[in-house]
């Protein structure tokens, strides 16, 4: 499969995700036929078979998804979605904040800024189910938490405060920032799962 990975580029940590996916593709031995590019409108989205929803300010990104007429197209998007931090908030069905218009693609409840303010942001080595190579060094910045999951959503990492990584079919959502720090194992795992589901 040639990967055509779009990174939603409305606001937030966009270039870091592009760099991380490029590095992941290189480490997986993908040829130059795979691409990573910015997505700002429905036409860009139509070019992708995978989409990353980056971290940023979730209220701002949510409003811009509506404004740029991307809400419906992302909901109907047939490819994989890799969502981090603010992106995880958007993937949920249930967000206790009227300013967020959640995509509802993963049956789960998410709490924004669940850990508090920036001074409560932290780095920690966390265990992720089924991930080879030991603990993952995770960077939590004003991070969300999953407070409840539906039947199809699998929690793959839990810390004492709650669930911080979930997978469901072609979707991955993380409360932390794998694009900061150079460890691309989660990006690679997401892409490998997609290849299994869409061998072409």
């Amino acid at each position: 499969m040639d990967a055509r990975i779009g990174v939603l580029a409305l606001q937030g940590n966009v270039s870091e995700h592009i760099d991380a996916f490029l590095l992941a593709l290189e480490r997986m031995g993908h040829g130059s036929s795979s691409e990573v590019f910015e997505v700002r409108n429905p036409a860009d989205l139509a070019e992708c078979n995978a989409l990353a929803l980056p971290g940023g300010e979730s209220t701002t990104i949510s409003r811009l998804i509506d404004k740029n007429e991307l809400f419906g197209p992302i909901q109907q998007f047939k490819g994989g979605i890799f969502a981090t931090c603010a992106g995880m908030v958007l993937m949920a069905t249930d967000v206790a904040d009227p300013r967020i218009h959640p995509l509802g693609l993963m049956e789960m409840a998410v709490d924004r800024n669940a850990f508090g303010r920036q001074k409560d942001s932290f780095e920690a080595d966390i265990a992720i189910a089924g991930l080879d190579g030991g603990a993952f060094h995770a960077v939590f910045i004003r991070a969300p938490l999953v407070t409840a999951t539906g039947k199809c959503v699998m929690a793959v990492s839990r810390i004492p405060q709650g669930i911080v990584a979930v997978e469901s079919g072609r979707y991955t959502a993380l409360a932390f920032h794998p694009e900061l720090g150079g460890d691309t194992r989660l990006h690679e795992r997401f892409l490998k799962r997609l290849v299994r589901q869409f061998p072409e």
Binding site: Q11, E57, S121, E123, D125, V139
Partner: peptide, 25 residues
Amino acid sequence: MKLEELRFGTELLKRGFASMQKGGV
């Protein structure tokens, strides 16, 4: 995860926070 191994206020967290503001007002 060991709670005593949480790290707060690191350079990466500080720069990461700033990075989340990109493209914003």
